[in-house]
């Protein structure tokens, strides 16, 4: 498309879960989502809880298998990869989760946690791994004395730094960050966000940044996608979408005080996804009937 090389191309991803034992019900959590992320770009993904943000993030990395759709990462169609090929591809795409404490093995010291991905993917001998671990720990703003600590001896922010070091160890091209700062205090959040932004540039990572905090999204992402009931309803440049929202839902999301109680969402009915219209260059909105 116009000669732009997309790092990540997500094409018509659908993921559903079935619930219920006797009366099976199918919930379609992600309902036909397509977008691209360019090299070095951070795409923010916003929406309220239950809209499918996390499922989308996981589906893209095949941590949950999507029902259909295609994900192309730097030319490789990862949806077509076999399990073993996918495993070999894993270092190139990584995920950061919301709860850093739960992401780390409680029995491992920082040194072991950060070395683990390097060992699994056989990136160097013991001495090289040890050197790299020290380098990484410093890069994320920790120091020597933290190397022998375990997760319970670190604060939430420090644990998130360890997680970041583990992710960077593999030099991924693409990361999905799922609310990595929502459990942190604002001043710690600012430290971690700055770190993610700076290291993202240094390591040339493309990033899908999932958050429900519009302030965070504004600070960290180049473009933003707004998700509602499993679909992206609006996508474009961050300032453009947040300052001049077009879709009624985005307007509600960015409105300062919402006084009226919104109607409870109806039980899942799945009409055909409306088409996306390019309203302004690079700013797409789902077509509304109104």
């Amino acid at each position: 498309m116009h000669g732009v090389c997309f790092m990540i191309e997500v094409n018509n991803i659908r993921t559903s879960f079935s619930t219920g034992f006797i009366r099976r019900r199918v919930v379609r959590a992600v309902d036909g989502v397509s977008f691209q992320v360019e090299e070095d770009e951070t795409l923010g993904l916003v929406g309220e809880s239950g809209c499918g943000k996390t499922t989308l993030g996981r589906s893209i990395l095949r941590l949950i298998e999507p029902d259909e759709g295609r994900v192309v990462v730097n030319g490789t169609d990862i949806t077509a990869l076999s399990r073993s090929d996918l495993r070999r591809f894993r270092p190139r795409m990584q995920m950061i989760f919301q709860d850093a404490y739960a992401s780390l093995n409680p029995r491992m010291r920082v040194r072991e946690s950060v070395a683990e991905p390097l060992k699994i993917h056989r990136m160097g001998d013991r001495a090289a791994i040890d050197r790299r671990v020290r380098e990484l720990v410093e890069e994320v703003g920790l120091n020597e004395e933290h190397l022998n600590r375990r997760p319970y001896e670190l604060s939430g922010g420090q644990n998130q730094r360890v997680v970041l070091a583990r992710v960077l160890a593999l030099r991924p091209e693409f990361i999905v960050a799922d609310e990595p700062t929502s459990a942190l205090d604002v001043s710690v959040q600012a430290q971690i966000l700055n770190l993610i932004r700076d290291l993202g540039q240094e390591y040339h990572m493309s990033c899908l940044y999932i958050s429900h905090d519009l302030g965070v999204i504004r600070a960290i992402s180049n473009r933003v996608a707004v998700m509602l009931e499993g679909r992206i309803v609006e996508i474009g440049k961050t300032a453009d979408v947040l300052d001049r929202p077009s879709h009624p839902y985005t307007r509600r999301l960015v409105a300062v005080p919402v006084r009226e109680t919104p109607e409870p969402l109806e039980s899942p009915v799945f009409p055909a996804a409306p088409a996306m219209v390019e309203e302004r260059p690079g700013h797409w909105v789902e077509e509304t009937t109104a």
Partner: peptide, 17 residues
């Protein structure tokens, strides 16, 4: 410092912990 570390107010963290 707390207010300046808000994303909408510049996201400048307070140094140290």
């Amino acid at each position: 410092g707390l207010l300046a570390s808000l994303p909408e107010r510049g996201m400048r963290p307070i140094p140290g912990s």
